[in-house]
Simulated scan of single mutants.
Amino acid sequence: MSNSKSSLANPSVISDFKEITKMRLALSVVFSSLAGYLLGVETVDFKTLILLAFGGYFMVGASNAFNQIIEKDLDALMSRTKNRPIPSGRMSVTTAFIIASIFTVAGVVILYTINKQTAMFGAISIFLYTCVYTPLKTKTPLAVFVGAIPGAIPFMLGWVAATDDFGIEPGTLFALQFFWQFPHFWAIGWFLYDDYKKGGFYMLPTGKQDKGTAVQTIMYTVWTILVSIIPVFGFTERLELSIVAMLLVLAAGIWMLYYAIRLFRIMTEKAAKQLMLVSVSYITLVQIIYVIDKFIG
């Protein structure tokens, strides 16, 4: 009897749940949406903040669970993913589908209690990720372009949750996170190239680890940097940035650009991995600088 009890409390059940919803990724997305909320809001309402955190988590968790159901056979082919709950046989497709469905409903309902537009963008994000991005991944490198749309929604979603308005400010936040995803994704696609190839995924813009991919990575990093400093010029209405904050954001961008150029120069998987790690730090740093600047300014 004690055996069955211990297996119920087995951490693998918890870790499988974390993995099917990709908890670490989901929490970084929640962080983005909370940063967007803090940028948009006049006075912070903690109830909305908590609702946004849970709604955002459910939204991303649902997308990830659906993604793993659709790709279960391909995940089994790749070293990086073959031990995921479904391909390894630890979780049935039915269980994963129930989790994904509950998360979808919970996410949209919670976001709807904030306002209708937030729920709408949340639902669009789940739909694009699951029904467009996931099937396209094995067909064309353009999948990354489609995947960058739901990936860029959270930062903007926070602003919409705060203001119930979609204008130039959330548009700018969306553009920043949209352009950032290309160097981030392509760096991952580069250092996991061989593994992705086993699953038939084409993540790099030229389909190869070549100069063409590296040049595009640099270009999109430059676009990211340009968008990140736009608020300092006063075009973006309530989304403002002081000179000091702009210089800090610019410095963070140049730091990421250095690693993108380094990838072009040495073309190694190690350089791609470094760019990926720097890109994660970069987007978090920029969001923190934006928020601190708003509350200090």
Rank of each mutant, 00 (worst) to 15 (best):
D45T: 08
K47H: 03
T48N: 14
L49A: 14
L51H: 03
A53M: 13
A53E: 11
G55Y: 02
G55L: 11
G56T: 13
G56S: 15
F58A: 14
M59P: 00
M59W: 00
G61W: 09
I69P: 07
I70R: 08
I70A: 11
E71F: 00
K72L: 07
A76M: 10
L77E: 15
L77K: 15
L77Y: 11
S79L: 09
R80L: 04
R84V: 03
P87A: 08
R90C: 00
M91G: 06
V93T: 14
A96P: 04
A96R: 03
S101C: 09
I102C: 04
F103V: 05
G107Y: 01
G107P: 03
V108F: 08
V109I: 14
I110V: 07
N115M: 07
Q117C: 04
M120E: 06
G122I: 05
I124Y: 01
S125A: 14
T130A: 15
C131Q: 02
C131W: 00
V132A: 15
K137G: 02
T138C: 11
T140M: 14
P141G: 09
P141D: 12
L142Q: 12
A143Y: 00
F145Y: 05
V146H: 01
G147C: 02
A148I: 02
A148F: 02
A148S: 14
P150A: 11
G151A: 11
A152G: 09
P154R: 10
G158H: 00
V160F: 05
D164K: 04
D165Q: 05
D165P: 00
E169H: 00
P170Q: 11
F174S: 08
